[in-house]
């Protein structure tokens, strides 16, 4: 089951540059929350703070409180422990190129020391079913490399890989920006189904996509969260002039 996310007074920096300013946010469990905003507004930085991926960049640091379920993200939890509970899907599909489809999905468990072959088989199959890829790859699980799949399939493979470690939260950083409309539609349908079991936070440049998949939408601008509300409110009658200008395309 998914868990909620609470963010209080989050500030993030790249060296001396501040990328996020005093972000406060509550993400409801088992809902999809979309983050929109122009490039460089901090929305990707924000979700990378949620699983402590931000700090893998040299000189990057974070201040503030983040709670994922009952876990205090920046207080006494190790990054690796946290990341097993918070899956992430990236902008460009990034399967491990030298691994088979099976090994790609099993990688998270195997590399964390999980060895039970039978259970691994089950989890791999279940994860691939969840990401709607099973039927397309079941005959070449061990024969083909993850990199041999099409872009859309690769992204669904990455989703399966993220699901295999059974996280509670799924972070998606522009998961469809490199995909064609058909693949995008499949991933959106998937997000709809995955909401039942996971809490989803999705960063997207495609506003229609945010409107389609998410119940809540946050608008970021210059490192600040300008507006956070129900998606339909943000897209039909936003409260802030800047949000309105952005969603109507008058921005800039």
């Amino acid at each position: 089951m998914g868990v909620g996310i609470t963010v209080e007074q989050l500030n993030a920096y790249y060296g001396k540059t501040q990328a996020l300013f005093d972000i406060n946010l509550n993400v409801l469990a088992n809902h999809a929350t979309a983050l929109i905003g122009p490039s460089g507004c901090g929305k990707s930085t924000f979700i990378r703070c949620l699983n402590r991926m931000h700090e893998t960049i040299p000189d990057a640091r974070v201040e503030g409180k983040v709670r994922i379920g009952d876990l205090a993200v920046y207080n006494g939890t190790s990054a690796t422990q946290l990341r097993r509970r918070v899956g992430m899907v990236f902008q460009k599909p990034n399967p491990f190129p030298t691994m088979s489809i099976y090994d790609n999905v099993a990688a998270g468990l195997k590399l964390n020391g999980f060895r039970n072959r039978k259970q691994l088989d089950e989890i791999v199959e279940k994860s691939l079913h969840s990401s709607a890829l099973w039927d397309e790859v079941k005959d070449s699980l061990h024969k083909k490399s993850g990199a041999s799949l099409s872009g859309g399939q690769q992204q669904r493979l990455c989703i399966a890989r993220a699901l295999s470690v059974q996280p509670e939260v799924l972070l998606m950083d522009e998961p469809c920006s490199a995909l064609d409309p058909i693949s995008t539609g499949k991933i959106e349908d998937l997000i709809f189904q995955l909401k039942e079991q996971y809490t989803i936070v999705i960063v997207t440049h495609n506003m229609q996509q945010a409107a389609r998949v998410a119940e809540f939408t946050g608008f970021f601008l210059l490192g600040k969260m300008i507006e956070f509300d129900k998606t339909e409110k943000v897209f039909t009658n936003p409260s802030d002039k800047r949000t309105e200008d952005y969603v109507t395309g008058r921005f800039g």
Partner: peptide
């Protein structure tokens, strides 16, 4: 054009 917000209204 997929209008939104004030344009959609």
């Amino acid at each position: 054009q997929q209008p939104a917000a004030v344009d959609l209204r």
